[in-house]
Design a protein around this nucleic acid. Sequence first.
DNA 1: TTTCAAACATGAAATATTTAATGTTTTATG
DNA 2: CATAAAACATTAAATATTTCATGTTTGAAA
Lengths: 229, 229
Amino acid sequence: MTINEPRPEFSWFRRISSQFISDKDFDKLEKTSVKLIFKKGETILKQGGLPTHVVYLEKGIVKFNYENESSKNLILTIVSAPKILGGANLFYKDNNLFSFIAVEDCEVILIDAKVLEEVLVENSRFAMMMFQVASEMFKKSVMNFISLAHKQKEGRIADIILYLAAEVYNDTSFHLSLTRKEIAEFAGCSTENVIMTLSKWQTEKIISVDGKIVAINDIDKLKHISKIG
Amino acid sequence: MTINEPRPEFSWFRRISSQFISDKDFDKLEKTSVKLIFKKGETILKQGGLPTHVVYLEKGIVKFNYENESSKNLILTIVSAPKILGGANLFYKDNNLFSFIAVEDCEVILIDAKVLEEVLVENSRFAMMMFQVASEMFKKSVMNFISLAHKQKEGRIADIILYLAAEVYNDTSFHLSLTRKEIAEFAGCSTENVIMTLSKWQTEKIISVDGKIVAINDIDKLKHISKIG
DNA sequence: TTTCAAACATGAAATATTTAATGTTTTATG
DNA sequence: CATAAAACATTAAATATTTCATGTTTGAAA
């Protein structure tokens, strides 16, 4: 983790915020913010810690990771920049429910939570927008959980591949930055199951896998697997 | 479902709101609200419908129910009155992600979402408080899902019994208003599994079950089962 | 009160999933 | 570049879970 000067850009966040708050208020946020660079695998915000900052992800990919008492991980969702990382950690005063961990090198701006709250209180439309953003993230997690509860492994892994293509990499073929173990933690199953399923789909020509390179060849078949669970 | 006159009381909601909004604003909410009574099993708010109202649960118990394409249900969480039913349905502009269904007879006040939004925009501290409440609900669902993903059936069912005792019935012995099937939909497992597990715990004297009456005899053992998963 | 449907209950068979054992490949680091 | 650790991969055995078949009990409605 290294500190990077000078002042952060906030480009995407500035654009969407400008509809709701004044330049003065945005400057206030910017002045108390700090830009950091996290390398793959580094923890941006730790589960159990106090929510002193709100994370604006400017570049990179982040996993929402829950670790239980036995050190088993569960990935709640995975998001790509640009995004305000909210969910339960935004507006929520208790200790962070989960960690944010960089899945790829990330550029991140940490916004002081106190200052943000001041700005939110002064700009209720802005607050509403931020809550919408947080709800959006919540919805992503819930949909993943629903898949997890309703479907068998194959349906869950199909959902994850489809989700990654549509929402994270924005392409049907992509360089997978997650390990098989992480996909398993996302799907709530064993690593072996992920490996076996991907291999099987490879032989069935539904996807092509070459190490970290994944390409969806037959998205309809994948969607069908997702549907029948 | 029957309409009940005259004006709703809002007692709990009025009390917590009074710290944040004026009587005038509260009256505005009250005037556009309608009090309804739902019988056990009736749907208060339907999945897929538009979030035209925010639900204030004055009396009773409600399940958050998600139904998938194959008509299989998943219970996200269960809450008891008094409570503002939020989560993704509050402040969220898309169609409702899930239904609210009465698990026991309920007294409910439907608040016009548009009017509430007006009041929220005018009273940012009140808005923040409502966000907190919604986040609280979110946390409950997420914790249930985490249990679901990390633990085996017994750990999950133990979590549910503990949750119901602590958060819904506020007693270690209670009249269970859920069927075994509903517990299964909460735990994400088969009905048979719930029945077998409860019977097993009954013979092990961890709980007493007599039809709908459930009593926790050995809460430490139950917590241990929850812990080891 | 009778009757029917749903809920509750149990055990066995079928299926899904994890664990363990083993080996190869890739990746990071001294 | 060598080397160790992690990731990837495959299989069989062990375990967990669901499905199915069957029967009893309970509760709501005619």
